Simulated assay, not measured.
Amino acid sequence: MSFTRALVTGGSGFLGSHLCESLLRDDVDVVCLDNFATGAAANVTHLAGQAGFTMLEHDVTRPFEVEGEFDLVAHLASAASPPDYFGLPIETLRAGALGTANALDLARAHGARFLLASTSEVYGDPLVHPQPETYWGNVNPIGPRSVYDEAKRYAEALTTAYRREFGVDTTIARIFNTYGPRMRPDDGRMIPSFVCQALTGQPLTVTGRGDQTRSVCYVDDTVRGLVALAASGHSGPVNLGNPDERPVLALAREIREVTGADVPIRHVDAAVDDPKRRCPDISLAKSVLDWRPEISFSEGISRTVAWFADGFAEQVSLH
């Protein structure tokens, strides 16, 4: 399955901007729709002059129409980091509910393939390890993280209902922790926090004892998986993540080593409902997409640190 024109909601965000870039490289025209609530215009400024790229500022939770035909609608619009969805709880729920419905309606009207960017958070604090797509999850529906978790779970249910009721060609990607260039310094997620703390000479703050695990995937690998899933015709859900599981404390130590920072690691209170273990079973992605991560953590984190370091150097030179 190939595409000629795509709509990417949340296209100016960290992951969305990389997806826009990838599609353009594949000669797919892209309309990037974003209200910049958590994304940044700077993430797609370098695409603005390219033929086939259009930026549309709009809130996906409000109905919209876009001129021209589409054969792919990729719905990535949502707050994705804890500080963002804690600060924008209602907006996050609306992006998962109203935003998903509006994006699905557009896909239905155009007969387009619909790709939902869901999350490993649908598994909550998992009781099954590693997590396969058949696992239903262990989610607190009224906890502080629930605005994001339940928004995505509802989005999955709505996407599946449109497929069953209206025959919309849909698929669902369950994305595990992804990192890389264009993450915001104040994103609040683990890797940008550790990198920025190290580069600015601050202690690296690890929640709890740091024995909780994460499996982190470099953004190029995640985007390659999204494109493969969109083109596959598979309905999903499909896990996209790196099964290289590491304790958070070990990740902090490796980032400190890569940056060369002589800073301590400081332990702070554990976050409420923070998953103790998180690791994808990617057997399905391997079999139906022929996809697996290719970029090692050492390579990916070196690229990420270099990107953040360049940004800090630029800020210093401006002052």
Score class of each variant (00 low, 15 high):
residue 120 S to N: 03
residue 47 L to A: 02
residue 171 T to G: 04
residue 15 L to G: 01
residue 30 V to H: 05
residue 277 R to T: 13
residue 313 A to G: 06
residue 61 T to P: 08
residue 273 D to Q: 12
residue 98 L to T: 09
residue 152 K to Y: 01
residue 260 G to D: 03
residue 69 E to V: 11
residue 229 L to G: 07
residue 276 K to V: 13
residue 160 T to K: 07
residue 271 A to L: 15
residue 176 F to M: 03
residue 224 R to L: 09
residue 221 D to V: 07
residue 279 C to G: 08
residue 307 W to C: 04
residue 291 W to A: 06
residue 235 S to H: 15
residue 236 G to I: 03
residue 149 D to K: 00
residue 60 V to N: 10
residue 289 L to A: 12
residue 252 A to S: 12
residue 313 A to N: 10
residue 119 T to H: 03
residue 251 L to V: 13
residue 19 L to K: 01
residue 56 L to W: 10
residue 267 H to I: 08
residue 250 A to D: 14
residue 173 A to K: 00
residue 44 V to C: 06
residue 116 L to M: 06
residue 253 R to V: 09
residue 144 P to M: 12
residue 165 E to M: 14
residue 4 T to K: 14
residue 50 Q to G: 08
residue 50 Q to F: 11
residue 144 P to T: 12
residue 89 P to T: 06
residue 276 K to T: 15
residue 167 G to V: 12
residue 194 F to G: 05
residue 262 D to E: 15
residue 63 P to L: 00
residue 250 A to G: 08
residue 299 E to Y: 06
residue 132 P to E: 02
residue 191 I to Q: 08
residue 317 S to H: 04
residue 259 T to W: 06
residue 134 T to M: 05
residue 121 E to N: 07
residue 314 E to R: 15
residue 134 T to P: 04
residue 64 F to K: 04
residue 258 V to T: 13
residue 58 H to Y: 00
residue 32 C to W: 05
residue 233 G to A: 03
residue 131 Q to G: 01
residue 31 V to A: 05
residue 145 R to L: 07
residue 136 W to Q: 14
residue 293 P to S: 13
residue 43 N to H: 13
residue 196 C to D: 15
residue 179 Y to E: 00
residue 201 G to Q: 11
residue 278 R to P: 02
residue 298 S to G: 15
residue 3 F to G: 01
residue 97 A to N: 10
residue 45 T to C: 12
